[in-house]
Design a protein around this nucleic acid. Sequence first.
DNA 1: TCGAATGGATAGTAGTGCTATCTGCTATCG
DNA 2: CGATAGCAGATAGCACTACTATCCATTCGA
Lengths: 216, 216
Amino acid sequence: MRISELSRRSGVAVPTIKYYLREGILPPGERTSPNQARYDDGHVHRLRFVRALIEVGGLSVATVREVLARIDSDEANLDLRLGTVQKALLPSTDGLSGPAQEAAEQEVVNLLEEYGYRYFRDHPAIASLANVMVAAQALGHNRFAEHLRRYVAVMPQVGVIDIDYIEQARTIDHMLESVVVGTVLGDTAIAAVRRLAQTSESAKRFPPRGSETPGP
Amino acid sequence: MRISELSRRSGVAVPTIKYYLREGILPPGERTSPNQARYDDGHVHRLRFVRALIEVGGLSVATVREVLARIDSDEANLDLRLGTVQKALLPSTDGLSGPAQEAAEQEVVNLLEEYGYRYFRDHPAIASLANVMVAAQALGHNRFAEHLRRYVAVMPQVGVIDIDYIEQARTIDHMLESVVVGTVLGDTAIAAVRRLAQTSESAKRFPPRGSETPGP
DNA sequence: TCGAATGGATAGTAGTGCTATCTGCTATCG
DNA sequence: CGATAGCAGATAGCACTACTATCCATTCGA
């Protein structure tokens, strides 16, 4: 198919498709002559994928490019590919330093030890989590660290769900895509379910007038 | 104190403080003369709060303004205030429509019923979650709905943690701030802990060479 | 054959989040 | 009292992101 049909089938405007081609987010079509190209279903899927990451997951175009480059990489070691894909999905944590940050990182590591996590010390999520702790501390929210401990206690259940999801993929490409979909759409989904769970728990604890057992 | 000291104590540049004043994100200082103002510790705290929401939580300036306006509101009904504050923290879901979206919303509602959530039908998180389902479907990830079900099954535990956190606040203002801190920093924290839990679970399931029980 | 569409290049635009400059005033120190 | 530094407020500018529009030579399809 040519670009106008690609546009129609993916719901993405033609100039935007050209922009994505320039940005290396969408691979070039197959040339049929020096200035004509043909696109296929893979391009349609890639476009939908990109739009989902940007619109639903809130990723920037630059992050999407990074992620896709890693998915498309020809690295043979699957673990390595999965790892670098995951890494591209965490906000950069450079520029986080100072004694407060390092103390918080140690505190995070202690928590991970305590709850039996397997981890490596330079995992970017450790710096990210420590950064949150430092920010909460600066706001005088001293109970936040205890709050975090409880998250650490329950999240392994989510980890199991997530790895189950990835493991069920049938091909390596599908597995790599599942990592991204599971992580990015998963973040959005978890944020939404969490709010619903908060509302629900709040309603249970403080019943709105009229929903208690009726009085005499 | 005056603006330069406010800048020094909060770590926010003077022009940025002026910008926040213009945007209504930072309340004006107390006038001491037609063109002089005095700021206090409340301003320092507010600035730190704003920076945490923007830098750690990734909120936009517009969202921060919305949230703060609701915190500062003089609405007497606490439930109402808490509710509107929470509402400002979900991405807008207008423009989500179509049969696929509505079917997905019904599916979400069914899930909530099944797991005993208390909810109201126009909760924005329902539309948001349905939107994620529609996007996953469009990518051919048909197992995603099952995946979501498992999130719905575990998230009530997080809801309890979150409401506990808010409930422990000592004043109404602190409670309102805890809602925001718990939600916004909480989202960031949960994303980080989730990645650590994924890495951990993955390492347990597929032990890296050298960590199995040694062979003969 | 000839008009519409295509690919590719270049330039322009809207929105966001600051940052710089300017103006007239004020605080303060010697 | 006067010099000087700092302040508040207004306006303009800037860098970046994610597109969008225009142009042109080429090519497809009727």
